[in-house]
Design a protein around this nucleic acid. Structure first.
Length: 874
RNA sequence: GCGGGCGUGGCGGAACCGGUAGACGCAGCAGACUUAAAAUCUGCCUCCCGGACGGGAGUGCGGGUUCGAUCCCCGCCGUCCGCACCA
């Protein structure tokens, strides 16, 4: 009988499959990451927050990157002695749940909660240092009920109002969208062409805070510059004037036309006035003038997409009306309706000065209107084929002649004010935030509509207004509206039969204050003043750049509104903001052009790719953001199964700076995995040789000094790297320390009696363990368990290492020697060696001496411990 | 069009305050170990000339400042992002 022995595949030294759950339980048992709502231990606080996820059901690599970054910060701060608040929750309202309900006949709540369960489990496998006791979902009445209370407080404070307005109607989603949610004329989710519709809507008066929201950007010095710029542009402050132009003949109740301009200085160059197609006067004209009506209808057809703006010509319709000029008695100016004038900005009407505004120039050229220059350029001369918009001196402008542009603006405004024709005005691009959505799966707006009392707030005692469970999705429109009983309630004021508001809040409302709720998630008021006084603002907020405007601006508004209504004492929610890059991957297509998942292909050694198990060639496409449509996604769960959470975390951190897009590669993860094994082997080696409480006296051996220097330099470098979000550099420094430790193992093998080296090796390992812990927490615990004198102390509970500056000092420095700025050799000296000595040696250096021979040295530059440069006569 | 960022080996990237450019990783090549492979370890790895020593070029391109520039200044080119008829 022949016994076949199949060799077992060599088991990895470090078994992450057993270790990771084990240490997660240990942290859990130790309550490591739980903090009090109001800690009284006197430690400094640090609030780390990553943007909470929408519970789609599966985490993706973007989440892994986001939460890894946050976890490194949280664990690092914790080791530095801070009380760290690091919570997690769910942005749980929103359309996908309703779509799922329609498609699969499940209930949005059931779908959402199943997703939350799945995603929580996946996140927990990552080993994040989260205080899970603070978890909540925004779809819980315990959360959104408080949101209703905030809504009513804001209403009482005059920060909410209901008004009729033109809205962006998404015909596919069947709901209203905010301007910010309309991209190139299409819905940000559905991609459907947006229609204009008039509805009664609830608005948060964000414009009330426009000046503060703009001014405070200047103090957010731990925000990326570009986010602040984007917000500033979005808020869009402009200074100008509002001017009333009297019509020479009143028409249908209109006696004048109001215009907003930033260039009142160019009034003398005015050659027309133009109305937006939606301007009330234009609409009024259209009633009696079919040509005007036809023109307006045509304008409406043309969208405001980027392409449309680029390609659409400026077109207008002469109304036959004229207005009087403020500064030129007797002068009349024609009134046009023009397709390029926006109703939403300013007054919906402009005055045109073609010489100094490109759009007006284009318009005037098309219709043969006069172009009269009134600003002569400070330098050069007036361009002949375009408008001049630069600085200069006023001409052809009566009392403004000779003034510079800025002075002329002031003078013109002053004169207009004296005449009673106009005044200076600051205008904002930002518009109020319409929050009404005709949707079921959102926070109900706590209002009751009564025929006699109007819109009545739901009394505090009746909150929360809870969503009904028994809804159906078989009709188009809002299920809340279809519900047989839910909306029928007595008026709280007069008890007459009334109806509930059936609109729910835009889900951006839910995410506008969750960070404050996390401070005391079980408080019976929306936020706990004590807890937020302790924890707010968020010290480090981390998320995607895609939220640079909407979410962050809304959250800033909400915080100010909460401050105004006395709920919170801070004005700004996020003291520090970090925006991470995307995770990208190669994309693959089969012979027929279909997209293929990375798991469906195999790479051959020559770099070509084939459909796994076949000879069908695969085209390797661009590296781009992971997306379901391109199928270039990697499932984090599969990566953790195969390599473990630490490997995934380490690779994500090591690849590149976190603000840039990173490319996920199989080779990169494999490399990270090898390193985890290498570290563990190293730890085993050192632990096995660990001589016990050896004490090294004196300076020790050169090998010991060398290792200690690297160790302490690494502590300094990793600390600095983590402080500055340079996680890839921290990783590089740890690779170096590991390399130095491997060298030391060889030194130790050659000199087993070197007690100082044994101590240095143990020190290096301990420090490496603690420095790596924020990034690879499970492995760090396992390594710590190998060497710990007191195995009960988790690395997670150990303080951040400090370095001894004396030990980081180099024994020798290599000084570069240049001749005429070119490197020609090096000399080695102890640091601080006097210039004369170094220069002499540099001159004597073989190769340098050869080049200096027969030449006159004009200058000897010496930078201590760095460089010597000889400048020769030519 | 306006605003902002970024251009460094085959790739990701590093570089203190203007002071040895290319740390560290990935890929690649060579070698050791092995019956073999995997794993591991060692070495090489910007380009060009040269056996080595050495020399030349080099941080998108062109100029400037400086003893010395990836870094500061001027002018281009490319690329990415945001906003976009905002008066």
């Amino acid at each position: 009988m022949i016994e076949t022995v199949t060799p077992e595949p060599q088991a990895p030294r470090y078994d992450f499959r057993a270790a990771e759950p084990f240490w997660q339980q240990a942290w859990d048992k130790g309550g490591c990451f739980a903090v009090a709502d109001v800690p009284a231990d006197g430690r400094p606080k640090y609030y780390v927050l990553e943007m909470f996820p929408y519970p789609s059901g599966k985490i993706h690599m973007g989440h892994v990157r986001n939460y890894t970054l946050g976890d490194v910060v949280a664990r690092y701060r914790r080791a530095r002695g801070y009380n760290v608040l690091h919570p997690m929750g769910w942005d749980a309202f929103g359309l996908p749940a309703e779509n799922a309900a329609r498609e699969r006949r499940t209930h949005p709540a059931a779908w959402t909660w199943a997703n939350i369960r799945a995603m929580r489990a996946e996140l927990q496998r990552m080993g994040l240092s989260i205080d899970w006791s603070r978890e909540f979902a925004t779809c819980q009445p315990e959360y959104y009920g408080h949101q209703q209370r905030l809504f009513l407080d804001f209403l009482a404070a005059g920060l909410v109002e209901r008004r009729e307005s033109w809205v962006n109607w998404d015909p596919v989603d069947g709901t209203v969208l905010a301007n910010e949610q309309v991209i190139d004329g299409r819905g940000w989710r559905s991609g459907a062409l947006i229609e204009k519709k008039k509805l009664s809507q609830w608005f948060f008066k964000i414009t009330r805070f426009a000046p503060e929201l703009l001014a405070a950007l200047g103090e957010l010095d731990r925000w990326p510059e570009r986010v602040r710029l984007m917000q500033a542009n979005w808020i869009g402050r402009s200074e100008g004037a509002r001017i009333r132009f009297p019509l020479t003949t009143a028409l249908a109740g209109f006696e004048d036309i109001e215009v907003y301009t930033t260039r009142p200085d160019t009034l003398f160059g005015m050659s027309f006035l133009a109305l937006a197609p939606e301007h009330p006067l234009a609409l009024s004209l259209a009633e009696s003038n079919p040509e005007a009506a036809a023109f307006i209808a045509e304008c409406r057809r043309l969208g405001t997409t980027a392409e449309a703006i680029e390609t659409t010509e400026k077109r207008g319709f002469p109304t036959g009306l004229t207005v009087r000029h403020p500064f030129l008695p007797g002068r009349t100016v024609p009134v046009w309706i023009a397709n390029f004038v926006l109703m939403e900005y300013g007054t919906g009407a402009i005055f045109g000065c073609p010489a100094h505004d490109q759009r007006d120039w284009d318009f005037a050229t098309a219709y043969g209107l006069p172009i009269l220059p009134v600003v002569s350029p400070a330098q050069g001369k007036m361009p002949e084929t375009e408008a001049y918009t630069g600085p200069g001196t006023l001409t052809n402008s009566g009392f403004l002649d000779g003034l510079e542009v800025d002075a002329a603006k002031r003078a013109a405004i002053e004169r207009l004010a004296e005449m009673g024709w106009g005044r200076g005005e600051t205008n904002w691009r930002l518009r109020d935030w319409g929050i009404s959505r005709q949707r079921y799966w959102g926070c109900p707006i706590p209002i009751i509509h009564c025929a006699s009392c109007g819109a009545v707030p739901v009394p505090a005692g009746q909150l929360p207004v809870v969503l009904p469970d028994d809804v159906t999705f078989d009709l188009p429109g809002n299920p809340l509206d279809h519900h047989p009983t839910w909306k029928h309630v007595p008026c709280p004021r007069c008890t007459a039969p009334a109806t509930r508001e059936t609109d729910t809040c835009d889900t951006f409302v839910d995410s506008s204050w969750y960070f404050a709720r996390f401070c005391a998630p079980h408080a019976d008021s929306p936020v706990s003043r004590e807890a937020t006084d302790y924890w707010m603002p968020v010290d480090q907020y981390i998320g995607g750049i895609e939220h640079a405007i909407l979410h962050l601006l809304y959250a800033r508004f909400f915080t100010r509104a909460m401050q105004a209504t006395g709920q919170i004492s801070v004005a700004e929610p996020f003291a520090g903001l970090f925006t991470q890059g995307m995770v990208t991957h190669e994309s693959y297509r089969g012979a027929d052009g279909r997209w293929l998942y990375p798991t469906e292909i195999e790479r051959r050694t020559d770099g070509t790719a084939f459909v796994a198990g076949t000879d069908e060639p695969v085209t390797i496409g661009r590296i781009e953001a992971m997306s379901k449509s391109k199928r270039n996604t990697i499932d984090p769960g599969a990566i953790i199964d195969r390599y473990g959470a630490d490997t995934a975390r380490w690779f994500i951190l090591s690849d590149n700076p976190p603000e840039r897009d990173m490319e996920w590669t199989e080779a990169g993860v494999a490399g990270a995995y090898r390193f985890t094994q290498r570290l563990y082997r190293l730890a085993e080696g050192v632990a096995a040789a660990h001589p016990g409480a050896a004490d090294a006296s004196g300076d020790g051996s050169a090998a010991a000094r060398r290792l200690r220097r690297t160790t302490h330099r690494t502590i300094a470098a990793v600390t600095e790297a983590l402080e500055s979000f340079s996680f890839n550099v921290a990783v590089a420094r740890l690779y170096e320390l590991a390399g130095a430790m491997a060298d030391a193992e060889k030194d130790a093998a050659a000199a087993p009696e070197d007690a100082a080296l044994a101590v240095a090796r143990l020190e290096a390992l301990e420090m490496l363990t603690r420095l790596a812990a924020p990034m690879m927490p499970h492995l760090a615990e396992a390594m710590n368990a190998l060497i710990a004198r007191d195995s009960a102390v988790l690395v997670t509970d150990q303080p951040w290492p400090t370095f001894d500056p004396a030990l980081t000092a180099a024994e020798t420095v290599t000084i570069a020697v240049q001749v005429m700025g070119k490197l020609r050799g090096t000399v080695v000296f102890p640091p601080g060696t006097p210039a004369a000595e170094v220069i002499a040696a540099a001159e004597a250096e073989q190769n340098v001496a050869r080049l200096l021979e027969g030449r006159r040295i004009v200058k000897r530059v010496h930078v201590p411990d760095r460089i010597v440069n000889f400048v020769l006569a030519s």
